[in-house]
């Protein structure tokens, strides 16, 4: 069974420390939600795990089934079974989705016949409510935010990764689309997909059942618990957890007195 282990992960973006030691473990079939306010480092976590340029890991490790993800290129991470559903999927002009998925599956040694891939893509698109016409277009180009998000879920469904990091998959989706996407992801978890779902609303968890909920504040996970943690968050907001560390309090006191 697959497992993603993140330990003590620290990372910088543009020279600024964003992640201050993140620990999280996601096993096959589990859904973990990472929740936090804007700017807490959620997207940085997603990008660092996928190997996006512009971030420097300063400490910690991330293992996927024992393999050191941080030593791998973005392609190798994907090949190892990691998938990132991006918050803002990149428009890639002139590049067709079918070519992308075909190349990925071939590289993974799961080369489908062209017709089979087209058929799989069509049937998954139907389940996710992605209009067939969108499949002909260049990847993410001229799509609405919601269409792009459905497209990310569609890719996940076709590529069948071991671990998926979903960066605000819910944003831009209407209620029906959100349900369809959540259902499809849940189905994938029954086949062993482990999910790290990043979001700042509890809305996603209304449709996607989370086994564990983690609260991330200022680059750290400050609380973890069962689904009830999300309910608590819904009542109290993030403020309860957003307490400055003691050292920072001292500095503030020093300034104000």
């Amino acid at each position: 069974m697959s497992e993603l282990i993140v330990e003590g992960l620290r990372a910088n973006a543009a020279g600024e420390a964003i992640l201050h030691g993140v620990d999280v473990q996601v096993a096959a079939g589990e859904v973990h939600a990472v929740m936090g306010p804007n700017g807490c480092g959620k997207s940085t976590l997603a990008h660092v795990l996928a190997g996006r340029h512009g971030y420097t890991v300063t400490a910690g490790r991330a293992l996927l089934d024992g393999r050191d993800l941080l030593a791998l290129s973005p392609f190798e991470r994907a090949k190892a079974g990691l998938f990132l559903a991006m918050q803002y999927p990149t428009e890639v002009p002139g590049v067709n989705l079918l070519d992308v998925l075909g190349a990925s599956l071939r590289a993974a040694g799961r080369a489908p016949a062209a017709d089979d891939l087209g058929a799989v893509l069509s049937s998954e698109a139907e389940r996710l409510g992605v209009p067939a016409a969108l499949l002909e277009r260049a990847v993410n180009v001229d799509l609405s935010g919601g269409e792009q998000k459905r497209g990310e879920a569609l890719q996940l469904a076709v590529l069948r990764p071991r671990i998926a990091v979903l960066d605000e998959i819910d944003s831009g989706l209407d209620v029906d689309a959100l349900r369809a996407v959540a259902r499809r992801i849940e189905e994938a978890t029954t086949e062993g997909l482990g999910v790290l779902a990043i979001t700042h609303y509890t809305r996603l968890l209304g449709v996607l059942r989370a086994d564990r909920v983690h609260i991330m504040i200022r680059g750290r996970i400050v609380a973890s618990g069962g689904p009830e943690l999300a309910d608590e968050l819904e009542r109290t907001g993030y403020e309860r957890w957003d307490r400055p560390a003691p050292a920072e309090v001292a500095v503030k006191l020093g300034r104000s007195f």
Binding site: A50, G51, R52, H53, S73, P74, F75, R77, A78, K79, F83, L84, M86, P89, T90, V92, V95, D99, V100, L101, A103, S104, L105, A107, A108, V139, Q155, L159
Partner: peptide, 19 residues
């Protein structure tokens, strides 16, 4: 563009050709 395609599992040389 490169990162997006690679993060889908497209090998770097294929990604470059597609782009």
């Amino acid at each position: 563009h490169r990162f997006y395609l690679e993060s889908r599992g497209v090998p770097p040389d294929v990604a470059e050709r597609l782009i």
